[in-house]
Design a protein around this nucleic acid. Structure first.
Lengths: 203, 203
DNA sequence: ACCTGAACACCGTTCAAGT
DNA sequence: ACCTGAACACCGTTCAAGT
């Protein structure tokens, strides 16, 4: 009595890889582990992801990236949309903390999965009076700020070190604060950055 | 006739690891490769880096981090010093592009190597009238912004993809602009962020 | 004290072989 | 057409053995 097995597919391989990453981290995401997740041998994966592990990880990045981008409801107001984008990005990445470093390292895949959003942010900024050049700059600045912030957050948590283990009082203070959650710090930084961009408009 | 070999030491192991990372990337930095760089067998490294590869990589992060921090001449003016810090950090990381992802993933090591600088930034901000809470936030925001920006830069370059290979005109535009160098984008973002922080002071 | 050979339990990937 | 067994050239790490 064998349970019928759904046939493998690129989609199933990528989804299994994401599940393994969430559970065991990037380190734990070996081809053999992903195959195990699917009840299959490692070598079978190559039929659906011919480019091997690299293509599989690209697929995971694209999956998460398109997932959050598609749910965004932009308004056409640059400041509101930048905030929406940044907050939703952080929220999506926070659900997959082990993936943040991978996304940060593969900007071309991330961009490719977000052209619609990027285009509408450009348009909103130009409508508001920004030059095309500054719109290009601003989008890169905000998206890197968001990834950098979230990567720092995820790494500080996973870096394991409990705040009390530091010998420096200053480090205890900083890491105790980080452990308390960083929503307020994120909002502080995001609003400061958006204020700074807005100031460039009046200038 | 044997050439006299300098004895191994923790310092020499860490320096060799940095050299391998610069040449061959994080992927290429295996214990065996670092040992080869030193003309030694892999197992010898463990006598000087008992914690294994992880401790070795921590050492590399600390080496680069203390290197740039120690050269900084702070002024006591928060805005000038934040700018100094951010620009010098980016400059240091840009000299070791393969290391940026590692530094981003090990914030506790990076912080530990920078307590003096972090403390003087806190002081400068409090002197200027920021609350301790906002000073804590601002330092984290600026340092993550800098790492995030530089990681994005390094990754976009190394991501290999030449701009012309994209099918989307928008992506060609973005990646052509990135390939042109991003000094102006960095300055644009940094000044915007500092402006935004300064605005929090008057409020 | 410092270095190493051999071994263990893993990797990603290829390729010929099975069904 | 789709999956796999065996194999290759690598990993990090341990540990007993060499000098």
């Amino acid at each position: 009595m064998t349970t019928a097995r759904e046939p493998l597919s690129r989609e199933r391989v990528v989804e299994a890889a994401l599940a393994v990453i969430d559970r065991a981290g990037i380190q734990g995401c070996s081809m053999r582990a992903v195959a195990g997740e699917l009840g299959v041998e490692a070598m079978s994966l190559y039929h659906h992801v011919p480019g091997g592990k690299d293509e599989m990880l690209d697929g995971v990045v694209a999956l998460v990236q398109t997932g959050f981008v598609d749910e965004l409801d932009t308004t056409g107001d640059w400041r509101i949309d930048m905030g929406l984008f940044s907050r939703a990005y952080r929220a999506a990445l926070t659900q997959h903390p082990n993936l943040v470093a991978l996304i940060a390292a593969r900007p071309s895949v991330a961009y490719r999965s977000s052209t619609g959003l990027v285009g509408s942010l450009f348009d909103a900024m130009e409508d508001a009076g920004f030059s095309r050049e500054d719109a290009l700059r601003a989008v890169r600045v905000v998206s890197r700020w968001t990834i950098g912030f979230t990567l720092g957050e995820a790494s500080a948590v996973e870096d394991g070190e409990s705040a009390e283990e530091f010998d420096e009082p200053l480090l205890v203070e900083v890491f105790t604060d980080i452990a308390r959650g960083e929503d307020d710090v994120f909002e502080f930084g995001l609003e400061a950055l958006l204020d700074g961009l807005e100031a460039r408009l009046s200038a």
